[in-house]
Design a protein around this nucleic acid. Sequence first.
DNA 1: TTTAAATTGTTTATGTGTCAAACAGTGTGC
DNA 2: GCACACTGTTTGACACATAAACAATTTAAA
Lengths: 157, 157
Amino acid sequence: MTDTDMNTDAHNGIDYSMLQSRIGYMLRRAQMAYFDIFAEACAKEGITPGLFGILAIVYRNPGLTQTAVSSALDVDRSAMVAAIDKLEEMEVMERRKSQNDRRSYALYLTDKGKAFTDRLNRTVIERESDFEHFLNEDDREWLLKILDRIVQAKKGN
Amino acid sequence: MTDTDMNTDAHNGIDYSMLQSRIGYMLRRAQMAYFDIFAEACAKEGITPGLFGILAIVYRNPGLTQTAVSSALDVDRSAMVAAIDKLEEMEVMERRKSQNDRRSYALYLTDKGKAFTDRLNRTVIERESDFEHFLNEDDREWLLKILDRIVQAKKGN
DNA sequence: TTTAAATTGTTTATGTGTCAAACAGTGTGC
DNA sequence: GCACACTGTTTGACACATAAACAATTTAAA
């Protein structure tokens, strides 16, 4: 990189230096980029990224309550209601009355839901993989580890 | 990491394996974590992350039009109107009539705005730095490079 | 030169998502 | 038994992204 184009975007000649060195900002931009292809893969299966998260958690952890899932995904539990309504409407998830606690529901995937989530997961992995030609396996693993460290660091304030 | 807690969050015992291996998802979570401290640093100076972005671009690229800034930050140009109204109200930025094109404005920081952005930038850097004790300088540089690669990769679809 | 098309800043409407508060029903602990 | 906490749920407020439309202005085509 030469002296003249340092800190300057090649395409539009704009100096991003004050933002490009902020991890917070670069995470946002990278997330926006990934979100597009993630959302596109989900849309292909008739679903949204938010619903994918719920399916992915319940797939691996059947029987969780709505609040437990909302907590796992770090979203408000009031947002679960409409989301799970929709998933039930699609007949991929079902609310079963909890045995020990009559306030809550236990969430399970239907057989259709398991197959659906499997296919969805493969689609997402495949679509991400197509996009990730600029990352080798080591890069990818390292990035995931660093990102996890960031997420964990936040929990302890 | 033992076999029993692999793919399982230590705190709540939930299996995140389907999400934890998705870069798109991890970027989202990491971005949420960073956004909190970024927004907090901005709030301390009476501003929002979005406005910080505009200040950072105009600081380094005085004279840009509103559309050019919106394009640089990848937001809709209609969102610029209220944002720059507020920055003018704070007397940190000003719209000057463009010489060659009477449709557009050229954006400049006031002296107050330059000092403000300097202080704001220091606050953000300092606050991020406090949070980044789990990253060494090599990690940080590497992460920024990877994130930039992701952002650039998206441009070429 | 005249005319059609594109661009600028702006407003408006619409959807979407987040957030806080409240509620009835139910569980827990003193 | 009683106060308190938790569940799913609804509601309203607020921000934010998206799209469409508009007048003024510039650019390109004929």
